[in-house]
């Protein structure tokens, strides 16, 4: 474990917590007897969260953590896997099933056909992998899928008029975690002999590059202290 990877995992954890906080806000807000102004805005405008991206991430964790009960790495590793699995599936459940949260989900805008991402990633994983075993192919699939999983969310953000802070921070933290992982891979490459994982590195690089334009607009909105807005 190195500082880059720990920072990456904590950033990833933060992104999940921000999303859970946002869902909690929507839930508690609608529970009020009087519609406060914030609640009104929250409930009227869409949450800006893409269910498609959440479903893709649940699939990423489900296929990546198949070894959670067979290969014990560390208590930290197991706990983090359980957190990511539990949070991703519960977020999908909230947006799909929860009587209040689902109202803030705008399915007419979240139209990305994410099935078109799953199949190519699966085919690619069958062709390019480190070892042709069930677990290894699904693990490679999870890497390819995670690289593109943010696309529905980024496209939804382009369509969302006013991106609220929590959603913007969620996407930023999600992009930042993989950027920190790239530093972790560089560090491990120079400190651990035989540590070479081209598939992981290239997928992680592609994933981070997909956030490039979001990062640009995110930082300029911070610098100019204006609302985050992605060009359509």
């Amino acid at each position: 474990m190195n500082i880059f990877r720990l920072a990456g995992d904590m950033t990833h954890l933060m992104s999940v917590l921000v999303l859970l906080l946002k869902i909690h806000t929507i839930k508690s807000c609608a529970g009020k007897s009087y519609p406060c102004s914030l609640c009104f805005i929250l409930l009227e405008s869409s949450s800006g969260i893409s269910l498609k991206t959440q479903e893709l991430y649940a699939l990423v964790f489900a296929t990546r953590y198949l070894d959670i009960f067979t290969d014990f790495i560390s208590v930290y590793n197991t706990i983090m896997k359980l957190i990511f699995l539990g949070s991703s599936f519960s977020i999908v459940w909230y947006i799909r099933r929860h009587k209040i949260v689902r109202r803030s989900y705008d399915k007419d805008q979240d139209t990305f056909r994410h099935f078109f991402l799953v199949l190519p990633c699966l085919l690619l994983a069958l062709i390019i992998n480190e070892k042709f075993t069930f677990k290894e192919v699904l693990w490679t699939f999870s890497l390819y899928l995670e690289a593109v999983a943010i696309l529905p969310q980024l496209i939804l953000l382009q369509r969302t008029r006013n991106i609220d802070n929590l959603t913007g921070q969620y996407v930023f933290l999600l992009g930042a975690y993989r950027a920190l992982y790239i530093l972790n891979w560089i560090y491990r490459y120079f400190t651990e002999p035989h540590y070479v994982h081209w598939i992981t590195w290239i997928s992680g690089l592609v994933q981070t590059l997909l956030y490039a334009d979001f990062f640009y607009y995110y930082f300029s909105s911070l610098k100019n202290n204006v609302k985050l807005k992605l060009p359509a």
Binding site: R5, D67, D71, I73
Partner: peptide
């Protein structure tokens, strides 16, 4: 040696 590749990253 047949090293079973264990992925130690999340």
């Amino acid at each position: 040696p047949l090293t079973v590749e264990v992925h130690d990253e999340l």
